[in-house]
Design a protein around this nucleic acid. Sequence first.
DNA 1: AAAATTTACACATACGGTTGCGTAACCTCT
DNA 2: AGAGGTTACGCAACCGTATGTGTAAATTTT
Lengths: 342, 342
Amino acid sequence: MPHNKLPTVKEIAKRLNVSTSTVSRALHNHPSIGLVTTMRVHKVAQELGYEINKTAIFFKERKTYTIGVIIPDLAEPFFSSALTGIEDAAETSRYNVIIGQSLNSFEREKRIVANMKDHRVDGILVSITKETSTYEHFEQLHKFNIPVVFFDRVPNRQDINYVACNLVSGMLQAVAKLVAKGYRRIGLINGPAKLAATLQRLQIYLNCLRQNGLEIDQDIIVSTTLSKADNLTAMNRLLVLEQPPEAVITFNDHVLLDCMAAVTNAGLEVNKDISFVSFANLPVWEYMDKKPLASIEQFAYKQASTAAGFLFKLIDHSAQPDAPEMPPLQCIIDSEMVEYSQ
Amino acid sequence: MPHNKLPTVKEIAKRLNVSTSTVSRALHNHPSIGLVTTMRVHKVAQELGYEINKTAIFFKERKTYTIGVIIPDLAEPFFSSALTGIEDAAETSRYNVIIGQSLNSFEREKRIVANMKDHRVDGILVSITKETSTYEHFEQLHKFNIPVVFFDRVPNRQDINYVACNLVSGMLQAVAKLVAKGYRRIGLINGPAKLAATLQRLQIYLNCLRQNGLEIDQDIIVSTTLSKADNLTAMNRLLVLEQPPEAVITFNDHVLLDCMAAVTNAGLEVNKDISFVSFANLPVWEYMDKKPLASIEQFAYKQASTAAGFLFKLIDHSAQPDAPEMPPLQCIIDSEMVEYSQ
DNA sequence: AAAATTTACACATACGGTTGCGTAACCTCT
DNA sequence: AGAGGTTACGCAACCGTATGTGTAAATTTT
């Protein structure tokens, strides 16, 4: 507890022999306070270096003007970009952002939620953990009037506020582009089966191929555990086929980096002998020579700032005393193919 | 202002016809409250779903258990890693972290500081903007008893708390390694002159070469504006020399990526015809084939968590009423060469 | 049995600022 | 001059919790 006390309205009031209410109103230039008094108050406030203690207001208003953000891992460019989107949105709405990384641990996620509840954040934005399958820790927030908006990694339920991304739209564009370029044999290097994203990507892949009237060949659908060695193996499996794919969709950019190495090792050339499409998460492509033909942009910034907008709307709404329950705010943002200039 | 009121000690007190002080003490199992009363209080608290409102405590104790972190840009892996270090340190000390990106704008930095002051954070960790040259906005925090610890990008003054990184140590190791490998001609691709980091790197470079008894040749010291085209030009300038350098130290990893491309374009091979050393900031090397021989690790996580430790020490210290002014806490962490397995 | 001590609780205040309501003093109008 | 209105301010309560101090009643001590 800091010892040296800061000047308060009380202090100003004492010096001027007026009441604290007068000082408070004078500082806000309330019309019911005379001009002379108002000026004297301002003068003394200036002299004492008075600055308002907003924590007192926060406490009284039961509002902290702070939102919490829970994300799995800041090291992922997707999430750091998302956080920037949130911060920008928060700044214009005069909110602060407190942050917690769940590091994909359900237990950490719960601890962070509890902590944010203790700090009485006005709302929470969250991209859930891979492990998260129960939601009591979020539901409990309802009691404290703390709205929650999920983004990107959202629970599979309908009674929640969320902003998510539709991967299909971007992939359709990408496959269309590949088809337009004359590619008919498009392979897939997928992730490990236990990840939900893996099944999702497979469905999208099949979906897009069918919509483009392409034949589906199980030989050019392989998977990797995401280890470097396994990534190389997966790519090599495709390269040694009698009829290797002309283009390959990879699980993510990390996989793709290894796949490109495998292509080079095989004496082939990326974007000439074989082309790639990936799911965007590395901003590093800009600095590189060999790039995928296109990437599926998932708009971290946009998703997150949209989610933040939802959250502020919910906060404002619940501030009204006669607030009827609001229907869930939900938004699905289309992904888009981003072509890289080669 | 949320309307549906949460249960308070007052509510519990009313139900049991006791005073709030009794309830408060009972909830903390204070010995001066009888066992029966204590248990009844706990029971009612449980039934009502009472949870303590810490904002009241924060307000009363003039302590928010929140620290502010101001960094230039989360998109840089260095800073996202630093933030993780801070978060981990904060969690074990039961602190929350509120975050602000200055985006290298001095004005934003000032706004963020003012905002964090309003929220009465208990302390601030900051990596300053490239533009920052005045410090009133930080000095002003002293009045509010908000300690500040700078890290990585620290002001050039001695009366401040800071944690910084000594780039020389790592570079010495790297040059020593290059020398041990038989390289005698070591070039430098530096950044634009207006950046402080540029002069710093030049000095380190000259320093290390001298200490290893190597000749300094101005022909193999070039610079780039950091644009891709310019990076390529810089590298090419070295490659077309009669006696090109055998190894090159690059300003940073982004520059290096382009330099590697230039090498490949020239029909040469990275790590065979020419080797590189860079200043670490990209975690992506792990996923790539061509890597620098070594990188100068600047320990974002360690710097940041050390700085956080300093901050908590300062906060604890200023909490003591008879606290004499503390001498500045300062720490310089040695950088280290990190060798990449090729 | 009276005195001393302990037990178990209530009262009041503080943290810093805001705000509804009350009220003197002054001014205006008839 | 008295009624009515306006101006300029003070009073008091409030947000939720903690805690120093006071004090009956119960218990122990002498």
